[in-house]
Design a protein around this nucleic acid. Structure first.
Lengths: 189, 189
DNA sequence: AGTTGATGCGGAGGTGCCTCCGTATCACCA
DNA sequence: TGGTGATACGGAGGCACCTCCGCATCAACT
């Protein structure tokens, strides 16, 4: 059930080296990470990098998959400690903080949303599920609208977060998230 | 008041040739437009292209400036014929249709929103003004919230429209715009 | 241990973006 | 019209992305 193929030892070793080198390179605050540098730093050829990670996004995704999983996992916790509306807002904040810190990740998330790759769809589905969870709670207690799809919220939020430098400064993103949140809110009719 | 410098004849001629070539190249439905090709087609060197249009965005912006101006200009007309809420939605549609047809323009708009270049700021301001106009009308008649900034709406809409291919198909953008619109709406409290 | 097919490796090379600067052209004035 | 500084031109070249394929390495079997 779990071993589709026999992996070669050197392949796995190189994969790990690449991830380590990438983590280091993307970690350093300053600027643009060239994949050639990552490969060199890992002591492998550029071809090897591309075989393991066919696109830049694939590499970044592998790098941050863990942290993203934590963001996803925070959703159920937030529901327990907060009312749905506030939980959703806090989740957005968490996501936004994450996406803007590692702003390489923001681009990658865009790509993930857009692309049709399989394991990309996976990440997208996880995010949607997290939001769905909160929204279900909100629908149940009547504070959130029932006719809004979680996926639409996710895509809109990703779109908002993927704008690099906002003209209105960092607080603008906050207001934009508020705007989206207001759209999900059940009007007191 | 109007002639800061004397323009050289060949410069202006090349500028026009470049725009013509670009319009043709971007017009053709199929795929990716290389700037080198545009330059060649215009019969000028690549260096000349870059002198006239320092970035790809500058070129695309120049290409579509007119059409964008029309989108901006549609705002006052919409106010006359529709209620503010509906006017805003129609404006968003107009914008979205435009941005997704010329999807090179979508990228460019992103760049415009993000970048700090002067004449880019100009376009951003125009868009914001258009939305502001509609929102003012909506605030006046009480259908739209007064505490939402037009700029936030613009940036959020651009973010949404700049997602290339949505996982939920073309209708998803429609729903996302509805979501944003709902955020601007005055709750009947 | 030796053989061998499968798997992975490396980096040269093709492409596009953009810069830089020596050369050509223009507009103006004598 | 010829001279001259200012302005614009062209394309080579540097950089990064990504592909392709001949060669090396691995692991499974004898």
């Amino acid at each position: 059930m779990s071993s589709p193929k026999k992996p070669r030892a050197d392949a796995e070793r190189n994969r790990l080296r690449l991830l380590a080198a990438a983590r280091k390179a993307f970690g350093e605050g300053d600027e643009p990470v060239t994949l050639e540098r990552v490969a060199r730093e890992a002591g492998v050829g550029i071809g090897t990098l591309y075989r393991h990670f066919p696109t830049r996004e694939a590499l970044v995704e592998a790098l941050y998959r863990d942290e993203l999983a934590q963001v996803v996992a925070s959703a159920p916790k937030l529901i327990e400690s907060e009312k749905p509306l506030r939980a959703l807002r806090r989740w957005m904040d968490r996501f936004a903080e994450y996406a803007s810190t590692k702003h390489d990740m923001a681009d990658t998330l865009r790509a993930i949303i857009e692309a049709g790759t399989v394991d990309m769809t996976q990440v997208r589905a996880e995010l949607t599920e997290a939001v769905q969870l909160i929204m279900d709670a909100g629908v149940e207690d009547g504070t959130l609208r029932a006719d809004v799809r979680a996926q639409d919220v996710v895509v809109t939020v990703v779109g908002a977060c993927s704008m690099r430098t906002l003209p209105g400064g960092p607080e603008q993103l906050d207001r934009m998230l508020d705007l989206i949140l207001a759209g999900v809110r059940q009007p007191p009719s």
